[in-house]
Write a protein that binds this DNA or RNA. Structure first.
Lengths: 159, 159
DNA sequence: AACCTAATTAGCAAGTCGTGCGAATAAGAA
DNA sequence: TTCTTATTCGCACGACTTGCTAATTAGGTT
């Protein structure tokens, strides 16, 4: 995602208006590597701008996605997450705490799908699933404490 | 996923009962490579067993997932899809029609994530995005006809 | 500086997907 | 056949997201 200043210019050049709500969201998302949900972003925004609406957060995120300034991440577990990182990267998910981390991955160019000659491939996404060190430790201490999640909430991802 | 007969045995050995609803769902899912949603499966099941409940379909799919007989696929676009294929495989998605195809992928073992020493990786999932030949053709004829989808519905997947 | 107009916001209703719950039912053992 | 317990069904509810619309505001115009 571009800087708030660059986005301001981009918005104007597209006939979009530069509202305080949008500017705040630009700031909150720029360089944000937390992969927040709309709700999480709304909470942050509300702290600085009481009264801002969740609807506006969703709307702005959708705009930014349309403009190619960020992408959606859907890896199970309910809410869509937003990623302003436009570099070529992939994701690692901790199946325990749900955190998502950006990672650069070597070797993606060598991936060869077999038997899909009738598809024109445009993009490849790789998702690693594992357990982060923090969760690994808490597991050692009290394995029972691991929050049970209903099947549909688990970060089961396509293999 | 195992055959309906094998599943019947597995269920009994676990003290689960073998109901007509479950048997039907075993049949419908066995060897199914359509990656259906719960609703889709419910529709098929209803055709053969009017009155079966959507609740039961969800319940049975969750059971099978718990038993490791199938996995969930969440690649954006709303509903969870179910995959009874337990082989080591990955997925290709047509961003136009939304179809999901199983694919074997060579080179996954060589994938190297950079900078996540604090993670213990258990699984890797690869998703290819592209356009299938059918959609490619219809695009050529009438590009405008391509069903517009709201951003959140688009099969945007983590990069 | 006041004015105009289209874009935007807020907020609630509604839609989709999935689960909790409880009463009625049925599987399978005795 | 009887009994116990798992299962089914259906509705209510919860989480997430979008549709709709009246009121507001950004930003160009006079």
């Amino acid at each position: 995602m571009q800087t708030p200043t660059e986005l301001a210019a981009a918005y104007r050049s597209q006939g979009r208006k530069l509202t305080p709500q949008r500017q705040l969201l630009f700031q909150l998302m720029h360089g944000n590597d937390k992969h927040p949900t709309a709700e999480a972003l709304f909470a942050e925004a509300s702290a600085q701008m009481p009264g801002i609406s969740l609807r506006t957060v969703y709307q702005t995120l959708n705009e930014l996605a349309e403009m190619g300034e960020l992408q959606f991440i859907d890896i199970g577990g309910g809410a869509t997450r937003f990623d302003p990182n436009l570099d070529d990267h992939h994701h690692v998910v901790c199946v325990d705490c749900g955190q998502i981390r950006d990672v650069h991955v070597n070797g993606t160019a060598a991936l060869k799908p077999v038997g899909i000659e009738d598809f024109t491939i445009n993009e490849v996404g790789v998702v690693f699933q594992g357990v982060c060190s923090t969760c690994e430790k808490s597991r050692a201490k009290s394995p029972k404490t691991a929050q049970a999640k209903s099947p549909a909430q688990q970060a089961k991802v396509s293999k």
